[in-house]
């Protein structure tokens, strides 16, 4: 409900000269005007603000729409198809797309449409979950490291450097050996090998921001460390963090594809976009459609995620309000 603002201007010079200050001269305001957090416009929360801005971004909406559609199709599509992802039909192998098999069949006669959808489930899961784990671990780690600085920062960053220095493949091999090459281990492997980047970025941001005025002010006011960290520093770093996360999801999906390329990916007969595209690489000259569909799926998903990421970027950044 809008309240009109009344501002009374008092002519101090005039009054000082002529009036004796007595308590009775002071007009007591009623409690309604004692609000300190008074804002002259309709009050909305940060999130509502962001959502509104996000909705204005057409590309982001398209991206979000496509992604939701994709998730629905991947989740429910395979149940509607007469074929399963591991149904082998050796007499119908390597068929081009037809009415029966919308995306064609692979070298064992399995329906590619269902396999691409199942692949979508896996790839999206891997991408999102590992990016999220990445985000959480990296942000906490980088935040703590950047905020406390000094020796703690040094040690923590050295650990990050070590992790960086060991090639991803080694991690994956090790984890795959101990736990088998299932979705869980692939996610764990990707998340573990890539959180270091997030940590570095967050730490860099925190290092800069903690010297800024509002942080110093909060500290001076005696705010709790965690409060400063989370509410002020991290929330203000949200721009680069979001950009990084939206770069991480596709990167995770790519890492999974790369792992499949080198043979460490999801175990057969389960499919992921990565395994589908790398399996078809061998015969791409003979059956290019086998590579086209998984790659197209990856591309379109990347597009959508990027548009969404841009949308978030614009929406959450208070300095870019239009």
């Amino acid at each position: 409900m809008k309240q009109s603002a009344t501002i009374r201007v008092r002519n101090f010079e005039k009054e000082q000269a002529t009036i004796d200050w007595t308590p009775e001269l002071v007009e007591k305001l009623d409690d309604s005007e004692k609000d300190t957090g008074f804002i002259a416009i309709e009050s909305t929360t940060f999130l509502q603000d962001a959502w509104r801005k996000f909705k204005k971004n057409k590309l982001a909406l398209v991206g979000a729409g496509f992604l939701i559609l994709l998730i629905l199709v991947c989740a429910f599509g395979p149940m509607l198809s007469p074929y399963t992802y591991d149904q082998i039909d050796l007499f119908n192998s390597n068929q081009a797309p037809t009415a029966e098999h919308w995306f064609g069949t692979d070298s064992l006669g399995r329906d590619l449409f269902v396999r691409v959808l199942i692949g979508g489930r896996i790839s999206l899961t891997v991408g999102v979950v590992s990016a999220l784990i990445n985000l959480v671990i990296g942000t906490i780690y980088g935040g703590i490291s950047g905020y406390f600085g000094g020796r703690i920062d040094q040690i923590m960053m050295r650990i990050v450097d070590i992790i960086y220095s060991i090639p991803t493949m080694l991690y994956v091999l090790l984890i795959t050996m101990v736990f088998g090459s299932s979705i869980g281990t692939v996610i764990a492997a990707i998340a573990i090998s890539s959180w270091a980047g997030m940590a570095r970025i967050v730490r860099g941001q925190v290092l800069t921001l903690k010297e800024q005025e509002y942080a110093l002010a909060a500290k001076a006011l005696g705010a709790n460390t965690w409060r400063i960290l989370i509410k002020h520093l991290l929330l203000n770093s949200i721009g680069p963090i979001i950009v990084t996360v939206t770069l991480n999801i596709p990167a995770a999906i790519f890492s999974e594809a790369f792992l499949s390329f080198v043979g460490c990916g999801i175990a057969i007969p389960m499919a992921s976009w990565g395994t589908l595209s790398s399996e078809s690489l061998r015969t791409v000259m003979a059956y290019p459609y086998q590579m086209f569909f998984p790659v197209a799926a990856i591309c379109l998903t990347m597009f959508s995620l990027n548009f969404i990421g841009d949308g978030f970027n614009d929406a959450f950044d208070p300095r870019r309000s239009k």
Binding site: F261, G274, S277, L281, V295, C299, M302, N306
Partner: peptide
């Protein structure tokens, strides 16, 4: 520029290579 950027992020490098 953003289109080029998006394409670059979206294609796995072995696909680009081939």
């Amino acid at each position: 520029c953003m289109a080029i950027s998006t394409i670059g992020i979206s294609l796995p490098n072995y696909v680009v290579a081939i």
